[in-house]
């Protein structure tokens, strides 16, 4: 479970990136956080990961305060970053192996890695190839495999579909769906409204650090999500 209580971040340069965010993502829920560039999505994720410290408020993972006990919370989260680069001189499997071990999965076999990589849709012949020969989407898939293999109850994804071809993106949604069904809390930041519509349990729209809209699946399926999103964006443009 992921909780944000009055979570606020003001960067050293005075930029208010996140303004009193209140949010709760339950086990078995996929939450899509939408928002324009610079809205504060990555900031939110970074706060959960303790990569940056909140100015005020709390981020809580499975009941543990991130600020108070950051190391403990790391057991319960996995993360897919915006731009997965990984280690170019390692093969896909070696990358997976390294991060799996870091995540505490020490007794996995080659086959287990292959299974995961198949699951994220990486082509078989790339398994033992060096990462530096990979395309962006292929790297993204390895990153996803790394997040999945850790098998943490909370998953944070920062624009994971960027760089994925439509088929892979659809497969990703399928994977997330399955993960949700095993009881994981999933926070996904994206610009991809289409995908949000297909799998999200709830959708939030963020603007200038504030969560300006929150809709459950039933609600946003009734309205036209694209229209709502553009409406909110419109206001930004129109604001003097």
């Amino acid at each position: 479970m992921l909780q944000a209580i009055e979570l606020t971040k003001r960067y050293e340069d005075g930029q208010l990136a996140l303004d009193a965010l209140n949010l709760e993502i339950k086990p078995g829920e996929i939450f899509f956080l939408l928002g324009a560039n610079g809205a504060g999505k990555t900031t939110t994720i970074n706060l959960f990961l303790n990569f940056i410290e909140p100015t005020s408020g709390k981020a809580i993972i499975d009941g543990i305060d991130v600020m108070e006990n950051p190391l403990e919370t790391k057991k319960y989260i996995s993360y897919v970053s915006e731009n997965v680069m990984l280690y170019g001189n390692f093969t896909a499997r070696q990358n997976l192996d390294f991060f799996a071990k870091l995540g505490g999965k020490t007794n996995l076999r080659k086959e287990d890695y292959y299974t995961i990589m198949r699951k994220v849709g990486l082509q078989e012949e790339a398994f033992e190839k060096k990462l530096k020969t990979f395309s962006k989407g292929m790297r993204q898939k390895v990153g996803l495999a790394i997040a999945i293999i850790k098998d943490a109850p909370n998953i944070l994804l920062d624009e994971p579909t960027s760089g994925l071809d439509p088929k892979s993106a659809a497969e990703l949604m399928q994977i997330l769906n399955n993960l949700r069904n095993t009881g994981k809390s999933i926070l996904m930041c994206t610009h991809d409204i289409l995908r949000a519509k297909s799998v999200a349990d709830r959708v939030g729209i963020m603007k200038e650090g504030r969560l300006v809209m929150l809709r459950s699946r039933e609600e946003f399926l009734q309205d036209d999500l694209e229209r709502i999103y553009l409406d909110y964006m419109q206001e930004t443009v129109m604001m003097p």
Binding site: F51, L71, E72, Y79, M85, F99, L102, G143
Partner: peptide
């Protein structure tokens, strides 16, 4: 940092 791997490492239980 440039490869983003530091984040992927520090997501784990390692200080």
């Amino acid at each position: 940092k440039e490869n983003g791997t530091i984040k992927m490492i520090l997501v784990n239980k390692i200080n």
